[in-house]
Deep mutational scan, measured.
Amino acid sequence: KNALMQLNEIKPGLQYTLLSQTGPVHAPLFVMSVEVNGQVFEGSGPTKKKAKLHAAEKALR
């Protein structure tokens, strides 16, 4: 199970927000955030999926 699945089991129905998309078309950088218990966690990556995963990993720490 990855961090997204684990976080969804603990806190179902979380909303992930796209904060920014920067970089060239062939190498974009997405920044996504998720709010858990009033705290906002951000993650970035080359795809929205990876950015969401990194945000979930930070939220689980």
Score class of each variant (00 low, 15 high):
21 Q>M: 09
32 M>L: 04
31 V>Q: 15
42 E>P: 02
10 I>S: 08
15 Q>D: 08
37 N>E: 13
39 Q>M: 12
25 V>I: 08
17 T>Y: 07
28 P>H: 13
55 A>V: 07
42 E>A: 10
25 V>K: 15
37 N>A: 08
60 L>Q: 00
54 H>S: 14
5 M>H: 14
16 Y>F: 12
51 A>K: 01
5 M>N: 14
36 V>R: 02
52 K>T: 06
52 K>M: 13
50 K>L: 13
38 G>M: 02
30 F>N: 04
47 T>Q: 02
57 E>N: 09
16 Y>N: 02
58 K>C: 12
46 P>N: 12
35 E>A: 04
25 V>T: 14
2 N>H: 06
37 N>V: 03
59 A>K: 03
21 Q>R: 14
10 I>D: 05
17 T>S: 10
43 G>C: 01
27 A>S: 12
30 F>E: 02
19 L>P: 00
10 I>V: 09
3 A>E: 05
61 R>I: 12
21 Q>W: 08
51 A>G: 03
37 N>W: 06
19 L>E: 14
24 P>H: 05
2 N>Q: 06
21 Q>G: 06
43 G>M: 00
41 F>P: 00
5 M>T: 15
55 A>I: 01
37 N>Y: 07
30 F>V: 08
42 E>W: 05
15 Q>R: 14
11 K>D: 15
39 Q>W: 09
51 A>W: 01
16 Y>W: 15
56 A>V: 02
35 E>R: 05
18 L>V: 08
2 N>F: 04
43 G>F: 00
11 K>M: 11
53 L>W: 13
18 L>M: 13
9 E>Y: 10
42 E>G: 03
14 L>R: 07
32 M>Q: 05
57 E>A: 08
3 A>F: 15
52 K>I: 04
46 P>R: 13
61 R>H: 11
11 K>C: 14
5 M>W: 14
21 Q>E: 12
24 P>L: 08
28 P>E: 07
6 Q>N: 07
34 V>F: 02
16 Y>E: 03
40 V>P: 05
36 V>T: 04
43 G>V: 01
6 Q>K: 15
4 L>V: 13
60 L>R: 02
38 G>D: 10
29 L>V: 13
15 Q>N: 13
23 G>P: 05
45 G>N: 01
37 N>H: 08
22 T>C: 08
22 T>K: 10
47 T>N: 08
19 L>I: 15
49 K>R: 14
33 S>D: 03
18 L>E: 11
43 G>A: 06
28 P>T: 09
4 L>I: 15
20 S>W: 05
11 K>Y: 12
37 N>G: 10
61 R>V: 15
46 P>A: 12
32 M>Y: 15
41 F>I: 08
30 F>G: 02
7 L>C: 02
40 V>A: 12
25 V>Q: 15
